[in-house]
Amino acid sequence: MGTSITFKRADGKDTEGYLAKAGRDHAPGIIVIQEWWGLQDQIKGMCDRLARAGYEALAPDLYGGVTVPYHDSQKANREMSSLDFLDAVDNIVRGAAAYLSQSGAKVGLTGFCLGGAVTVIGAVRVPEIAAACCFYGVPPREAAKPEDIKIPFQGHFATKDDWCTPEVVGALESDLKKSKARWELFRYDADHAFMNEQRTVHDRAAAELAWGRMLSFWRSHLGG
């Protein structure tokens, strides 16, 4: 359904991404941020699915064309560790928001794993974002403080997650209680990356429940 495009970063440089169009004018936009595996077909599929739900969905390619096989966690960690998160947010995410908002529509931000952390940072640092939905990713506080979020925020986390552990999610919840945002957090009896249907950790029941909650969130805060 979608296609690869080139768009401008906030600093004016070109960057790449995958765009799935809603097929109607002035559709709200959603930026979709990849896992640490890169811009995999699974993320493109998320964009296609959002387009079918009525949203223009753009997944920036944060790794510049590099994708990592699911079994190679060491390479994925190297790629993620080499990513300048603040540059990615301030220039790539903000450039994607500018691209999607050309029609005047509202723009949301979502992401998974690495992309979940980017979503929290973007919710703080990108003024063009109207609402943010995070899946199992929390950045270090030096990158963004969740209590500084002011836009509507929704989070989805797994109770069996060994990265975004229940303790990490509890700290996020405590920080959000200090914020001025309208927010909600959901926890699922599942593993990290339960939304990824290409991996053995996929949990269909949890994924479909989270998907429905996310769409309801977008309808409330972006329209569509």
Results as ranks from 00 to 15, higher is better:
Ala193Thr: 05
Ala207His: 07
Arg199Ile: 04
Met214Gln: 13
Phe217Met: 03
Ala207Tyr: 05
Phe217Thr: 01
Ala205Lys: 08
Ala210Gln: 04
Arg199Asp: 02
Ala193Asn: 03
Trp211Glu: 07
Asn196Gly: 02
Ala193Asp: 08
Ala207Ile: 08
Leu209Trp: 03
Gln198Ser: 14
Ser220Pro: 01
Asn196Arg: 04
Ala190Lys: 06
Thr200Phe: 05
Ala205Glu: 08
His202Leu: 10
Val201Gly: 00
Ala190Tyr: 07
Ser216Trp: 03
Trp218Gly: 06
Ala205Gly: 07
Trp211Gly: 06
Met214Ile: 04
Trp218Met: 14
His202Asp: 13
Trp211Asp: 04
Thr200Pro: 13
Glu208Trp: 06
Glu208Asp: 12
Ser220Ile: 09
Arg204His: 02
Arg219Tyr: 12
Arg204Phe: 01
Ala206Leu: 00
Gln198Ala: 12
His202Cys: 11
Trp218Ser: 04
Val201Phe: 00
Ala210Met: 04
Leu209His: 04
Tyr188Leu: 00
Glu197Ala: 15
Ala210Gly: 07
Ser220Arg: 15
Arg199Leu: 08
Ser216Gly: 13
Asp191Gly: 03
Leu215Ser: 10
Ala210Lys: 04
His192Thr: 02
Ala210Phe: 01
Met195Gly: 10
Asn196Leu: 03
Ala205Asn: 06
Gln198Trp: 04
Tyr188Asp: 00
His202Ala: 15
Gly212Pro: 10
Ala190Glu: 06
Glu197Phe: 14
Asn196Asp: 11
Ser216Ile: 01
Tyr188Arg: 03
Glu197Ser: 13
Ala193Tyr: 03
Ala206Met: 00
Arg199Gln: 08
Arg204Ala: 03
Arg199Gly: 02
His202Val: 09
Thr200Met: 05
Thr200Lys: 13
Ala193Gln: 02
Ala207Thr: 07
Arg219Pro: 09
Trp211Ile: 11
Glu197Trp: 15
Met195Phe: 15
Phe194Lys: 11
His202Phe: 15
Arg213Ala: 12
Ser220Val: 05
Asp203Met: 14
Trp211Met: 11
Ala207Lys: 11
Asp191Arg: 08
Glu197Val: 08
Ala206Ile: 00
Tyr188Phe: 02
Met195Tyr: 12
Trp211Tyr: 12
Arg219Val: 10
Ala207Asn: 08
Glu197Asp: 15
Ala205Phe: 04
Ala207Phe: 06
Glu197Arg: 13
Trp218Gln: 09
Gln198Glu: 06
Met214Ser: 14
Trp218Asn: 12
Leu209Pro: 00
Ala210Ile: 01
Gly212Asn: 15
Trp211Ser: 09
Ser216Ala: 13
Thr200Arg: 13
Leu215Trp: 07
Asp191Val: 00
Gln198Arg: 07
Asp191Glu: 09
Met214Val: 07
Gly212Ala: 10
Gly212Trp: 10
Arg213Gln: 14
Asn196Phe: 01
Asp203His: 14
